[in-house]
Design a protein around this nucleic acid. Structure first.
Lengths: 185, 185
DNA sequence: GTCTATATCAAGATAGAC
DNA sequence: GTCTATCTTGATATAGAC
């Protein structure tokens, strides 16, 4: 018996490799061959799990969306249990400076440059977040602005423009979270 | 004597065609042949003006940066003449919903997916805007948040996620500009 | 499930006529 | 400055052995 479910594990390694390719070489050079090279598998092996390139891109977007949905659900559970509004927790989740943020950038970039329609699931996800972020707010326009600023952080990561020092970034993050609390004051 | 400078005119038509290709087919399918088809020129003609694809991408980014620099300079001149702070005028320029915004998205997307380093000039431009936006502000962190929200608007245009109704978009825009005025209160 | 080998094609680039 | 024709490569995808 293998140490982990072999199928899922291989799939994830391949997706990890794909993200690395995008990060290192750019979305244009996300080729099957480049993924093969980084993943350590052979071309046939990779194409067994993702029969064509579209499937690979779709896999990247779906993993991203699922992972993000998980974080959102977690944030909402915590908020509910604490009897607190959900917005600060969503803001925290979206601005967390973990590897996830780069992952978002690479997956979105790869998909949109090749097959924009694959962003559909991400699109739906964002609409849902928008909605939950705004509903129950005493100031919907400001809520939307906060959401846009959170988007802006991702935007800069996507373009490689995230030049904030950790201190400034943390100050921005803290302020945004603070602003969400005031939406309910 | 031709109606316009022929060289410049052809270059611009080609760049327009390139942007249309990105908008319609995605950055990945920004091929020389696709640009040739849309521009109406022949492959040889296009390659005379942009000897290779990198030159074409560079042309897209440079035209974008120059156009934006022009708008910024204009905003700053107006602010100076009126004896007003510059931030509200920069915010207005950045949030204007003209065709320019789509142009920005297409050019950046094409460049980053193919050759990220071509974004250098855009990177420098944004750093400059950031700096001018923050200096002289009574609340640098809030200034940066406003700038990030403006980025967020572009981000959504880039990903095709700009689903605001014109009314909501205008409300967001007005609020952002209003916030910049208060940075000097 | 993973591998090698190969067919096929799209796209970038060059050469040279007009 | 603009055109047609052609060369060459890089990348997707298939077939089939292990």
């Amino acid at each position: 018996m293998p140490p982990q479910k072999p199928g899922k594990d291989t799939r994830d390694s391949i997706l990890d490799a794909a993200e690395k390719v995008v990060a290192d070489l750019g979305a244009r050079r996300l080729t099957i061959d480049a993924v093969v090279e980084r993943s350590g598998f052979s071309k046939g092996g990779v194409l067994y799990h993702f029969p064509n390139k579209t499937a690979l891109l779709d896999g990247m977007v779906c993993r991203l969306v699922q992972s993000f949905e998980g974080k959102l659900a977690e944030a909402e559970t915590i908020a509910r249990q604490a009897g607190e509004p959900v917005q600060p927790h969503i803001a925290k989740a979206m601005s967390a400076k973990d590897e996830h943020q780069k992952q978002v950038a690479q997956a979105l970039l790869a998909a949109i440059s090749e097959e924009p329609h694959l962003l559909g699931p991400a699109h739906d996800l964002l609409r849902g977040v928008d909605q939950r972020f705004i509903e129950g707010s005493s100031d919907p326009v400001l809520s939307q602005i906060i959401m846009l600023a959170l988007d802006g952080l991702h935007h800069r990561a996507l373009l490689g423009f995230d030049v904030f020092t950790p201190e400034i970034r943390e100050a921005i993050r803290a302020r945004l979270i603070d602003m969400t609390w005031k939406l309910h004051a």
